[in-house]
Amino acid sequence: MTDDTKVPERKLRHKEPRRAGADSAPLAIDRGSVAANASIDNPAWRIKRPPDRPWPFKAENVSPLQWWRTLPSDAFRDAEQILLLTTVERIGVLHGGDDLAAALAGDAAAAIGVAFSLMPIETATLTVDIAMTALCRCALARNAAAALVMAQVIGLTDLNHGLATELAASWYTRGLRYSSNPRKFSQAEAVLLTAFQERHRDGESA
């Protein structure tokens, strides 16, 4: 793994976690490829990466258990999804109880519950990576609520690479695309953006 694709294993911090539910989430964004052109309708996302700059992380250079915090949703093609599913199915849960086991089996509600139970995420532990990978698996299975929670957790966590907002935007876009009620889904925008902005202000004032 090259230096520019290493994912720090140390602190993943955020302050004052906001636990907006799946029906009271955030953001309204361009439905095109966020990773490809980083074009977001709402300027509050503040995505500044030039559209012609390639995404700095590649799936082959990062462990599948770290993909949730390094790859945007549109980077998960068939090959990546198959590998992610294979990785999840090979995980044996020694701790974490029935909820984590259900999450790994593809239960979206359990995966969402486990993800929220981890907040605020301060350290990228193996448990965190496993739980968020289980949630990622559900989001990739076109579960809009799981995608929304992916956006929320990622957007409220300091991933130590400065691309959390872009990653969050990509998962929000995916959730909106597959939501059975896009209008209600979009009503979450103000809540999520407010939480993201407060986290950024907290970080700047720390």
Rank of each mutant, 00 (worst) to 15 (best):
Asp74Gln: 04
Ala35Pro: 02
Leu65Asn: 02
Ala75Gly: 04
Asp74Trp: 08
Gly96Cys: 11
Pro64Val: 08
Asp74Gly: 03
Arg69Leu: 09
Val93Arg: 03
Asp99Pro: 10
Trp45Thr: 01
Ala75Ile: 03
Ser63Asn: 14
Arg53Leu: 14
Gln66Ala: 13
Ile29Cys: 02
Arg69Asp: 05
Val93Cys: 07
Ser63Lys: 01
Leu83Ala: 13
Leu27Asn: 08
Ala36Glu: 15
Leu27Arg: 11
Val88Ile: 15
Ile91Thr: 09
Asn42Gln: 10
Pro72Tyr: 01
Arg53Cys: 09
Arg49Thr: 05
Lys58His: 15
Arg46Ile: 00
Pro43Trp: 14
Phe57His: 08
Phe76His: 09
Trp68Phe: 13
Pro51Leu: 02
Trp55Glu: 11
Ile29Val: 14
Leu100Asp: 08
Asp78Ser: 09
Asp52Gly: 01
Lys58Thr: 15
Ser63His: 13
Ala28Asp: 10
Ile91Asp: 03
Arg31Ser: 13
Pro43Gln: 09
Gln66Thr: 11
Ala38Asp: 04
Asp41Phe: 01
Ala38His: 07
Asp99Arg: 15
Leu94Gly: 05
Ala35Trp: 05
Asp74Val: 05
Glu80Ala: 15
Asp78Gln: 10
Leu83Phe: 06
Pro54Lys: 07
His95Gln: 10
Arg49Ile: 00
Leu27Met: 12
Asp98Met: 05
Thr70Phe: 02
Ile40Asp: 00
Leu83Asp: 11
Pro51Tyr: 00
Ala75Val: 04
Ala28Ser: 05
Arg53Asn: 06
Lys48Asn: 03
Ala75Cys: 13
Arg69Gln: 11
Gln66Glu: 15
Trp45Arg: 04
Asp74Ala: 07
Trp67Ser: 08
Arg31Cys: 05
Pro50Asp: 09
Arg90Pro: 00
Ile40Met: 06
Gly96Asp: 10
Ala75His: 14
Phe76Pro: 03
Gly92Pro: 01
Ile40Leu: 08
Glu80Val: 11
Glu89Asn: 15
Arg31His: 10
Asp30Phe: 02
Thr70Lys: 02
Val62Met: 01
Asp98Gly: 05
Leu85Gln: 14
Pro72Ser: 07
Ile40Ala: 06
Gln66Lys: 12
Leu83Cys: 07
Leu84Phe: 11
Pro54Tyr: 04
Gly32Leu: 05
Lys48Thr: 10
Thr70Ser: 14
Ser39Trp: 10
Gly97Trp: 13
Leu84Tyr: 09
Ser73Tyr: 10
Phe57Trp: 08
Ala44Cys: 05
Thr86Val: 07
Ala28Val: 02
Thr86Leu: 07
Thr70Val: 03
Ala38Arg: 14
Thr87Pro: 11
Lys58Tyr: 14
Val93Glu: 05
Arg69Pro: 03
Leu65Cys: 11
Thr70Glu: 00
Asp30Thr: 02
Pro50Gly: 07
Ala44Phe: 11
Leu83Lys: 12
Gly32Phe: 04
Ala35Leu: 01
Asn37Ser: 07
